[in-house]
């Protein structure tokens, strides 16, 4: 439940933003040579205002409106959690579906611009059962993009990741181009030798996709309503180009729970 934990949606309440209460203190001069308490405590009005900032985080309200609406009485609030005590001869730890990715550098605009999305989000977008029924649209304004960039965010590091993420990027491009009229895609990545040898020739044949061997630098928007500007280096020169949608090839990381489990049982993660 990665989005619940890390990028949780919070309703834009009317009282946001409002500053946090500051703790009053006695001055430094009053502190020398004695042990009087430094922090003097919130006055009542400050405490109440501060307490009112609490968002009362909660998902299901337990209001039972769904239960009232359900014609077949399928809702059961008392369905218990089950506790199982099991014994095994072996344990295999895998990364699971918790698609945690290594912290995405703010330079890529992810989280700031709604039209910058990850490869995993793009995968869901392309799925026929996904939120847009498989249509490629910009989550910023619902428009169908004409120019799309797929860029590698973590070019350094392991070759395997570099290979599989670019293959994913190309495959996503194949699907996107098939479904979107007049779409042009630019894929920017330092292509690994392995990729070049095995896939580049085929990838370059795909109409509408241009493979750019290079390194992307940043994603920015100069003004509201403008398209995104991507800077990248290619063949020793710096380029800037504008796009309607940017897809980031991300590097998955292990969730801390998986790491802890692996450490505890002294088993590698497969």
């Amino acid at each position: 439940m990665i989005y619940e934990k890390e990028k949780r949606y919070i309703v834009p309440f009317d009282d946001v933003p409002s500053p946090r209460a500051e703790m009053p203190e006695i001055s430094v001069d009053e502190r020398r040579g004695n042990f009087d308490e430094v922090e003097t405590g919130f006055p009542e009005s400050v405490a109440v205002t501060e307490a009112k900032r609490c968002l009362s985080c909660r998902r299901c309200l337990g209001c039972a409106l769904c239960w009232a609406e359900c014609g077949v009485e399928a809702i059961d609030f008392d369905m218990p959690d089950e506790v199982l005590e099991l014994e095994f001869d072996d344990v295999i730890i895998t990364r699971g579906q918790d698609n945690a990715f290594s912290a995405i550098d703010p330079a890529w605009g992810y989280g700031t611009y709604a039209d910058v999305i990850t490869d995993l989000q793009f995968e869901r977008m392309l799925s026929p059962t996904g939120p847009t029924d498989g249509r490629v649209v910009s989550p910023l304004d619902g428009e169908i993009p004409a120019r799309l960039a797929v860029i590698q965010t973590e070019p350094e590091g392991d070759e395997n990741h570099l290979l599989s993420s670019v293959v994913l990027g190309v495959n996503e491009s194949i699907l996107a181009l098939d479904r979107t009229e007049g779409l042009k895609i630019t894929l920017i990545s330092p292509l690994s030798p392995d990729f070049k040898e095995r896939f580049l020739a085929d990838a370059e044949k795909i109409a509408g996709l241009s493979m750019v061997e290079g390194k992307a630098g940043s994603v920015q928007r100069s003004g509201e309503g403008d398209p995104l500007t991507v800077t990248y280096s290619h063949e020793g020169a710096d380029h800037t180009e504008t796009f309607d949608l940017v897809v980031l090839l991300t590097k998955p990381v292990l969730s801390s729970e998986t790491q802890a489990l692996s450490k505890k049982l002294d088993k590698p993660v497969q």
Partner: peptide
């Protein structure tokens, strides 16, 4: 009445 980001769809 409760909206949250859909994890299955990567929060889209």
């Amino acid at each position: 009445p409760v909206n949250m980001l859909d994890d299955f769809n990567e929060g889209l």
